[in-house]
Design a binder for these strands. Structure first.
Length: 370
DNA sequence: AGATCATTACTACTTACGTCA
DNA sequence: ACTGACGTAAGTAGTAATGAT
């Protein structure tokens, strides 16, 4: 009697934000109390070209002219009027970044799309840009992130979270963080920890829900919007992925523990049943001449199939995982995947758990080959 | 075509710092 | 005020993929 159990590999993508494209509602945010940002993604030739443009832009900023910036914005190949904004953000003072005021639109593919941010309203420009990057740091990032003079057109790229800092006790992590960052910049070598503001974290979180990894354009766009270095955005996503994986590992562990308990109980029950059958067979040798039976569990429908030499019957199983399994890139799991000969089994005398995503005795549930 | 090297992006692990009880 | 636990930003080493030569 065998029970093969393949733990689920139910990959669940992150929920997507409402893909609202109602840009016309921006107009309300151009009132005196709010501002609106729209990050648009237009076709873009190549990364290198964009970087070159960024460098030109930075160069132009040094010369206090907007020529390169406007060149970038007006280049037909870079920005099409048909291209919808990537992220449209309506914010009011003291309004945190939430799903309700964040209208996220699909990310650009890694192959196209340059990121542009246009803002309406004056508050973003007039406010104190507390998290501004010194030119030195931007140079560290390969001049990928343009520095924008406060009054240049490019300054509209930057989300000005300092709006919040003007309100009472919301003096805010933004200011503290930026001042610490400035200290770090001044000292150079000292490793001061920069704590991201709630708004920055929330925005990054929203972005992470859209995509857990970033391509260079997305990274640059986020960095610009949040007034962070691209490296900071990159690190944040790395750490965020690590946290997600850690949490998922904990969930997996809990689930496997429960699975183990359930299977142990099932094993005990089957063991007992086997003993009863043996006793029955001993007392009545002509009773129950059954063929060898194999129990296999379908990983998708989570049913146990009792397989004999001729028939397959499916019954509901007693093992019902309540936790949705997400795929983990756990190295332990992956390392075990190449051992195809050791099929996981639960026998009447022993228990071994199946490895996720390997055992598909049901042809109709086999994953499509990709 | 295959080998080698540089670059890039990632993971895993670690460290350092800020916050809070 | 001090301290330890915890969360997290950032550093480091190793690895895999990719493109150029």
């Amino acid at each position: 009697m065998e029970l093969g159990l393949s733990l689920g590999d139910a990959s669940k993508p992150f929920g997507f934000i409402d893909k609202s494209r109602d840009i016309t509602t921006n107009n309300r945010s151009s009132s005196s109390l709010g501002f609106c940002m729209a990050l648009s993604i237009g076709p873009n030739p190549t990364n290198q070209q964009e970087l070159q443009l960024e460098q030109e832009q930075e160069h132009s900023n040094d010369n206090s002219t907007d020529s390169a910036t406007t060149t970038k914005i007006k280049t037909p190949t870079n920005l099409s009027p048909l291209d919808p904004p990537l992220i449209q953000l309506d914010l009011l003072p003291n309004t945190p970044v939430t799903r309700s005021n964040l209208h996220a639109l699909p990310w650009p593919s890694s192959d196209n799309g340059s990121c542009e941010v246009a803002s309406s309203g004056n508050m973003a420009r007039s406010g104190l840009d507390v998290n501004r990057l010194p030119a030195v740091e931007e140079a560290e990032d390969g001049a990928a992130l343009s520095s924008s003079p406060p009054n240049s057109a490019a300054s509209s790229f930057q989300m000005d979270f300092s709006i919040y800092s003007k309100n009472g006790n919301q003096e805010t992590e933004v200011e503290r963080a930026s001042s610490r960052a400035s200290d770090e910049d001044d000292n150079g070598n000292t490793r001061k920890k920069l704590r991201l503001s709630k708004e920055q974290s929330a925005f990054l979180e929203e972005s992470f829900k859209e995509h857990s990894t970033l391509n260079p354009k997305q990274k640059l766009a986020l960095a610009k919007q949040l007034n962070l270095r691209p490296r900071q955005v990159e690190v944040w996503f790395q750490n965020r992925r690590a946290r997600t994986k850690l949490k998922q590992t904990e969930v997996d562990c809990e689930y496997l523990k429960r699975c183990c308990e359930t299977l142990t109980e099932e094993n005990r029950r089957l063991h007992k049943e086997l003993q009863e059958l043996r006793a029955l067979k001993t007392s009545n040798p002509f009773y129950m001449q059954l063929p060898a039976t194999t129990l296999t569990m379908c990983p998708s429908c989570e049913r146990v199939a009792t397989t004999t030499s001729a028939t397959v019957t499916t019954t509901t199983t007693t093992v019902t995982p309540s936790t949705t399994m997400k795929p983990t890139s756990n190295t332990t799991t992956n390392n075990n995947n190449n051992n195809s000969s050791a099929e996981p089994t639960v026998t009447a005398t022993g228990l071994s758990l199946a490895r996720p995503g390997r055992f598909y005795p049901f042809s109709h549930h086999q994953p499509s080959s990709s």
